[in-house]
C-alpha cells in the first residue's frame, strides 16, 4: 500500500465500561410473551388509567398542541407528550383536572379509556407460535419459551455491547492516528465504492443513481443530497484504507500491495473483538 501510518494510536488507551448486564428485564419478557398471546387479545373499558391504556382526552390550553376537542393516545406510549402522559396515570374516566406541561396549563378531561387484556400464555400457544421457526426448535412449553427469550436477549445484548465498544475503539484509533493517505489509492477505493453503490441503487431501487430523488436518497443513506453522499463515500474510502493499515499493523504486519474492497471487507478484526470481550465482565442470569 502507498498510504502509511506516521504515528499509530494505541487502542488500549481507549476507556470503556468494563461491565455489562445481560439479564433480561421483566418488561422485555412480557413484551415477547405478547407475541404468542396477542392472537387472543381482547379490549375492555378502563376506569382508572394505567400505563399502556388507550385514552381519549379533551384538552384545552393556550398551546395549540394541547388544545384539542379529542385526542387519542396510549398512556406512557410517548408518542403524544411524555410529560402529559405521565400525569395521566391514576386519573379516572370522566375526571377533569389541570396539569402544567412544558410550562403551559392544560385543562384535561378523560373522555374514555380502554385496556388491552392478554390471556395467560400456555404451552399450546407456544407450540403454535414456534411452528416453522428454525431458531426455536425444541421450544414447546412456556418455561422453555421464556428461557429462549432470556438467552436470545443475552446473546443480542452481548453482541451489541461488544460491537458498540469495538466501533468506539476503532473510531478512537482512526481519529487519533496520524495517517498519510495516497491520493491515487483513495481515488481507487472511492471509485470501487461508487460503482458498488450505483449497482446497489439499480438492484434495490430499480433506478440509476443519477435519476434517484433526494428524498429516496435521504431515506436510504441519511445524506441530504448526492453531493453530500459523494463526500461521505470519499470519507469512507479514507476510513477503509486507515482500517486496513490499522488491522494489518496489529495482526500479521503484512500490508497488501494493492488495496481493494474485497480486502477491506475481509479484514480480520478478531484481535480487537477478543480484546474487548476479555475486558468486560458480563452479568448473566
Amino acid at each position: 500500500m502507498r498510504s502509511y501510518i506516521n504515528k499509530l494510536a494505541d487502542y488500549r488507551d481507549f476507556e470503556f465500561e468494563h461491565e455489562a448486564d445481560l439479564r433480561c428485564p421483566k418488561e422485555y419478557i412480557e413484551k415477547q410473551l405478547r407475541h404468542i398471546t396477542r392472537g387472543s387479545r381482547r379490549t375492555e373499558k378502563a376506569e382508572v388509567l394505567q400505563k399502556g391504556d388507550v385514552a381519549v382526552l379533551k384538552l384545552e390550553s393556550k398551546a395549540a398542541k394541547f388544545d384539542r376537542p379529542s385526542v387519542t393516545l396510549t398512556v406512557g406510549g410517548g408518542l403524544f407528550d411524555k410529560e402529559l402522559e405521565e400525569k395521566l396515570v391514576g386519573r379516572k374516566v370522566g375526571e377533569r383536572f389541570a396539569v402544567t406541561v412544558n410550562g403551559e396549563e392544560v385543562k384535561t378531561e378523560v373522555l374514555s379509556a380502554t385496556r388491552s387484556v392478554y390471556p395467560e400464555p400456555d404451552d399450546e400457544m407456544v407450540k403454535k407460535y414456534v411452528a416453522g421457526k428454525d431458531d426455536m426448535e425444541g421450544v414447546e412449553t412456556v418455561e422453555q419459551y421464556i428461557e429462549h427469550i432470556k438467552s436470545h436477549y443475552a446473546a443480542e445484548k452481548k453482541q451489541e455491547t461488544v460491537f458498540g465498544i469495538l466501533d468506539s475503539v476503532a473510531e478512537y484509533v482512526l481519529t487519533h492516528t496520524d495517517w498519510e493517505f495516497d491520493e491515487k489509492e483513495v481515488q481507487k477505493v472511492y471509485d470501487d465504492m461508487y460503482t458498488e453503490m450505483c449497482e446497489w441503487v439499480k438492484d434495490e431501487m430499480g433506478t440509476s443513481f443519477e435519476e434517484l430523488f433526494d428524498d429516496e436518497l435521504t431515506a436510504q443513506t441519511g445524506a441530504e443530497n448526492k453531493a453530500q453522499l459523494l463526500e461521505m463515500i470519499r470519507a469512507d474510502a479514507e476510513r477503509a484504507i486507515a482500517s486496513a493499515l490499522f488491522v494489518h499493523k496489529y495482526t500479521d504486519g503484512k500490508e497488501p500491495k494493492e488495496i481493494d474492497l474485497n480486502e477491506i471487507y475481509d479484514l480480520d478484526w478478531s484481535f480487537l473483538q477478543d480484546y474487548v470481550t476479555e475486558n468486560i465482565r458480563f452479568i448473566e442470569e
Binding site: 405478547r34 396477542r38 379490549t43 399502556g52 388507550v54 396510549t74 406510549g77 380502554t114 388491552s116
Partner: peptide, 13 residues
C-alpha cells in the same frame, strides 16, 4: 413484522 406487532400491541388505535 415483529416490530409492527409490538407497535400494534402498544398503539392498538
Amino acid at each position: 413484522a415483529k416490530s409492527l406487532d409490538e407497535l400494534d400491541d402498544e398503539f392498538p388505535f
